[in-house]
Design a protein around this nucleic acid. Structure first.
Length: 470
RNA sequence: GCUCCCUUCGUCUAGCGGUUAGGACGCGGCCCUCUCAAGGCUGAAACACGAGUUCGAUUCUCGUAGGGAGCGCCA
């Protein structure tokens, strides 16, 4: 069987992490089976759909690398087709026009709630002798009266619901525009979708959709309902949880590889394995292994994965992503070490690319003032000697790389018979203006000879001035 | 209210009738150490509850409790 999956978001906001994970699962299922992954924009709600949202979804998919084989298709382009199917259903008496006012429906619902029964349409118009004049009717699908709808959900197992729990749902509004539960069925049918993988908020819609498939003479696809993603406090994801849009994660400094890995492990697992490359995901993912429970989003773990990938990925790849943050923070990467070199050193010290860029500014722009506390502690008269000594050594080093640089510092410490700290800390302050930086050999390496010597001179001048002032 | 769904450490999860209930993040401790980290070792931490079924239940069944979703002329 040729597997075809689709991701069908409605463009009413950005691509959030829940949607992204659903898209990832759809994508993986298609890729794993050599099938097709289709993107369809469900924009039938003209009021709430916006072109900006469409773009945000496309951007999010692109950043994550979730490429689609067909689409994006837009439901607003399919209105003729929907109208055609509605006419067909009407002519076969599988649907009927309903003239009930919204007011009557509201009253009905209220009464049913009060009686403690599930609110549903009572079928008043299902067998009308005379059609009222002057009222534009809605069209309702004639749902089967009895029997059960049973389907084997790939993640939930068998789900069964009685038809008398369902009512005759509206499939077209008075202006003829179709509604969701109807359009998904028509599109999934027309696009030969074999596996519908979507959020579990759609479980309750599935039985009615299956009935529509059957009325259309089509075989329903296989369904798989994946659980939703909760905020880190276990509550439903919302704006107050901070980053929920996929692109916000890019802005915050996460690698798409890390987010993808995090997302695939939220609700799915393969034994004890935590890290999955894209290829491994494709190879190992099975929709049947997806969990049933909603999962809470844990930023700490995402951070861990992000750092893992920053450390493990090809530095050139990391550098490409890092470059975006340099631009965004207004740091010019031209006056300093190559970003790939920087990334290899900084990756183990930060959780995000954002932090990496922000903390690396000194390698490109230098510093103007010493951090007072660091200077007070490390730029003392006693530090002058080590700084002079290391300065002399740096002048003669031919191979400006971590190994020889480390040797030079070791040498100075040995000659002066002091600990590493007595050399490294003053030097660190001289180079960076502050007391925190990568290991001293790496800091020198990244800083380069010229900037390093300048820093040492600046520090020596500072010490001299300090002595003079006393 | 009704229907459907869910329930293993704080979090993500492994488990598929018999295990010292495993791993990961986070947290504590120790080691390493030129700062911050990273890394190594190590510790604390869970089967929601109650009945069955069974020689034996985390695992199967049914209840209870708690949580979620749906019940639109939104998707």
């Amino acid at each position: 069987m040729n597997i075809r999956t689709r991701f069908a978001p409605s463009p009413t906001g950005f691509l959030h992490v829940g949607g992204a994970r659903t898209a990832l699962f759809c994508w993986l299922h298609a890729r794993a089976t050599g099938g097709q992954f289709i993107l369809r924009i469900e924009d039938t709600d003209l009021e709430r759909s916006t072109p900006e949202s469409v773009q945000a979804i496309l951007d999010g998919m692109a950043w994550l690398g979730l490429d689609y084989d067909e689409g994006p298709f837009y439901q607003t382009d399919h209105f003729d087709r929907y109208a055609e199917v509605i006419r067909q259903l009407l002519s076969q008496d599988k649907a009927y026009t309903c003239y009930c006012s919204k007011q009557r429906l509201e009253d009905l619902r209220e009464r049913q709630m009060k009686e403690g029964i599930k609110p549903r349409y009572d079928g008043k118009c299902s067998h009308l002798e005379f059609k009222p004049e002057g009222i534009e009717p809605v069209v309702r699908f004639r749902n089967p009266r009895d029997g059960d709808v049973v389907f084997d959900d790939q993640v939930r197992g068998r789900i069964s619901i009685s038809n008398n729990e369902l009512d005759d749902l509206v499939i077209a509004r008075p202006d003829g525009s179709p509604t969701y539960n109807f359009t998904v069925v028509v599109d999934d049918m027309d696009m030969n979708i074999t596996h519908v993988i979507r959020g579990d908020d759609h479980i309750n819609n599935t039985p009615r959709q299956i009935n529509i498939y059957r009325a259309l003479g089509a075989e329903p696809p296989v369904f798989a309902h994946v659980p939703m993603i909760l905020g880190d406090d276990g509550a439903r994801l919302s704006k107050r949880h901070g980053a929920v849009g996929v692109m916000q994660y890019r802005d915050d400094g996460y690698l798409p590889q890390a987010l993808l890995n995090y997302l695939v492990r939220l609700g799915w697992s393969h034994g004890d394995q935590e890290v999955f490359s894209i290829d491994e995901m494709v190879e190992l993912f099975d929709i049947k292994d997806v969990n049933r429970k909603a999962g809470a989003f844990n930023t700490d773990k995402l951070d861990w994965l992000n750092q893992y990938y920053m450390k493990g990925l090809d530095p050139d790849v990391v550098a490409e992503h890092l470059d975006w943050h340099f631009d965004d923070l207004g740091i010019s990467a031209s006056e300093g070490p190559p970003l790939a070199d920087l990334a290899t050193v900084q990756a183990e010290r930060v959780k995000t690319l954002r932090e990496m860029a922000a903390q690396s500014r000194v390698f490109y722009e230098g510093y103007s003032e010493f951090d007072p506390k660091a200077a007070k502690k490390h730029l003392r008269p006693v530090s002058a000697m080590p700084l002079h000594a290391i300065r002399t050594k740096l002048l003669t080093i031919e191979d400006w790389s971590a190994g020889p640089l480390h040797g030079a510092i070791d040498g100075v410490a040995a000659e002066l018979e002091v600990g590493m700290g007595k050399v490294a800390q003053p030097l660190r302050v001289a180079l960076t203006g502050c007391g925190v930086s990568p290991s001293i050999d790496k800091t020198l390496w990244l800083m380069g000879r010229e900037r390093s010597l300048e820093g040492i001179d600046k520090a020596l001048a500072f010490i001299k001035a300090r002595v003079a002032a006393q």
